[in-house]
């Protein structure tokens, strides 16, 4: 009976998660022909090649930098907006809607919007810079700027979800704790540090882990905004896997990279949970 009840989800997970995952590991053990056919069994040699590859190291490094750029800023902005929108003010509902609206925006729409905004010739941001007599900045075309620009788009794109999740966390903090703290003489900053932060810490940890995982999986905005360039400056790891598989026709290498990525994200998540969980208050 129990098995019967589990069966539908087992079938779905099996077909769409476990089988492809097993198949990826398997594929990583083979060299492939330029047409993508499995040819020679090389065992873990291919995994060793991937781990030794300087291109893979570069992608990994860029992804790490990208994660450091997006996750803390995204969490801080989400928390800041959630705290602002948690005030009992008239019309605050309008702001809540605006702050959460990026949830309803797809990566494609967001990317196209930012291509227009960041355009060196007609983009609004460069128009403003020109208005201050500055030279236009080639945000998506210069290696020094491209990763920053893509990170900014990603932060904006994730802000809606982060805002909603942290707002939900704030709702669970009883009002009388804030009232009591006000009577106890705590300043707004003390109330934030001593009450809000500890009591939403489980939500922040959740946001931290999820945002880190999504930033390691970033693909859409890279594909649409920079195509991994210029000079591989935005060649994040998932985009590099995609390029290897569907542009260089090396599915074996791509599969090995994907498995290594999985192990890295798994290890990172475990480390995050172990390190940060001690500082989290679960009530």
């Amino acid at each position: 009976m129990a098995l019967m009840l589990l069966l539908p989800s087992l079938v779905v997970f099996g077909l769409f998660v476990y089988y492809p995952f097993g198949r990826t590991i398997w594929l990583g053990l083979f060299r492939t022909s330029p047409f993508g056919n499995r040819t020679t069994y090389v065992g873990f040699e291919q995994y060793a090649d991937v781990l030794a590859s300087s291109d893979f190291h570069h992608s990994l490094w860029v992804t790490l930098v990208f994660t450091v750029m997006t996750v803390p800023v995204g969490l801080a902005l989400g928390l800041g907006l959630a705290v602002l929108a948690h005030q009992r003010l008239s019309g605050v509902g309008i702001y809540r809607t605006i702050f959460s609206s990026t949830v309803a925006t797809s990566v494609a729409v967001a990317s196209l919007m930012f291509i227009a905004l960041l355009s060196p010739s007609v983009g609004l941001i460069n128009q403003i810079i020109k208005g201050f007599d500055g030279d236009p900045i080639y945000f998506l075309q210069r290696p020094g700027w491209a990763l920053i620009a893509v990170a900014a788009v990603t932060v904006w794109q994730n802000l809606g979800v982060t805002f909603i999740v942290i707002s939900a966390g704030l709702q669970s903090v009883p009002d009388d704790l804030y009232e009591s703290a006000r009577l106890d003489g705590a300043s707004a900053w003390m109330r934030f540090v001593d009450i809000t932060l500890p009591l939403v810490s489980p939500t922040l940890l959740f946001g931290f882990v999820v945002l880190t995982i999504t930033s390691f999986q970033t693909f859409g905005q890279i594909d649409l905004l920079t195509g991994g360039g210029p000079l591989d400056a935005t060649n994040l790891i998932v985009f590099s896997i995609y390029t290897e598989a569907f542009r260089n026709f090396n599915p074996g290498v791509a599969a090995a990279q994907a498995v290594v990525l999985f192990l890295i994200v798994l290890a990172l998540t475990v480390v995050q949970l172990k390190l940060v969980e001690r500082r989290v208050f679960y009530g």
Partner: peptide
């Protein structure tokens, strides 16, 4: 300069 005891006590749980 006053102190209040709440019905829920409003103790800081953490």
């Amino acid at each position: 300069d006053l102190a209040m005891v709440f019905q829920s006590y409003a103790l800081y749980p953490h």
